[in-house]
């Protein structure tokens, strides 16, 4: 059983078809990048996996459970793009509330740990609305991982973060021993984070394989990896 199963999923929003029979599986403890141009269906895919929206058809499982189920949400951590913690609460309050509702063991220690690792200690009692975008993103990441999820769904996780912070977070993610599905349209993030890639365009899977394969293709065709991906998308 794969940790993430996404089979023949169709999803439309009015007349716009966001997903057109998209299918893929992610094995447990695998890290996979979901790459695609704007409007390809990446965020829609993650929202379906997170249980926020229902597909029109198809089968979706998270750890063998329906994404909408309590069991799936216990093991899943979701970081949306442009995540927004509760603006009128402080940093610490956000962590305490979400951690409590996710029944995190040793919540107090976990909150302190995350405040330290995300370098948010000096902002612990600051209202989120007063934080910079980068610090809000750090808090959002902390909220997504506070309950030690086994399956992580990340949508552009490193947006707004400076390079040292990006490295620190990637290192932490790699130590989590979890399954990752990372949506991004920036290849350098995918390369640092994951070994496999799924390229989608117009709601369909157009390529899947190892990132090393893309690098090899770029060497053979004397193109950048981004150029290779653009070519793959253009051919689909």
């Amino acid at each position: 059983m794969s940790c993430i199963e996404f089979h023949e999923v169709q999803k439309s929003f009015g007349s716009k078809k966001a997903l057109d029979g998209l299918s893929f599986d992610v094995e447990c403890q695998e890290s996979v990048a979901l790459i695609g141009p704007n409007g390809a269906g990446k965020s829609t895919t993650l929202k379906i996996l997170a249980g926020l929206i229902k597909p029109d058809s198809g089968e979706v499982k998270i750890g063998g459970f329906d994404p909408d189920s309590i069991e799936a949400k216990r093991i899943m951590g979701y970081l949306p793009e442009d995540a927004s913690p509760y603006l009128t609460l402080s940093v610490k309050e956000n962590l305490e509330y979400i951690g409590a509702l996710r029944k995190t063991d040793g919540l107090e220690q976990k909150v302190e740990f995350l405040l330290n690792i995300m370098e948010l200690n000096e902002y612990r009692n600051s209202r989120v609305s007063t934080l910079s975008r980068g610090n809000r993103q750090k808090l959002s990441i902390a909220l997504a991982i506070i309950h030690d999820p086994k399956i992580m769904l990340l949508d552009e996780p490193l947006n707004y973060l400076d390079i040292p912070t990006q490295e620190r977070i990637i290192k932490y993610f790699k130590g989590m021993n979890a399954t990752f599905l990372v949506s991004t349209h920036i290849m350098s993030i995918a390369e640092r984070f994951t070994k496999s890639a799924l390229i989608i365009n117009n709601g369909r899977l157009v390529w899947s394989g190892q990132i090393d394969e893309l690098k090899e293709m770029s060497r053979q065709e004397d193109m950048t990896v981004e150029g290779v991906i653009s070519k793959i998308m253009g051919e689909s």
Binding site: A50, G51, L52, I70, E71, K73, R74, M76, Y78, P80, A83, S84, P85, Y86, L87, I98, L101, R102, K103, S140, L143, A144
Partner: peptide
């Protein structure tokens, strides 16, 4: 509803 609800609350294991 707030965006924060969709980002963090509704994806929490709450019935």
């Amino acid at each position: 509803f707030k965006k924060s609800d969709f980002d963090f609350l509704f994806t929490s294991p709450i019935p």
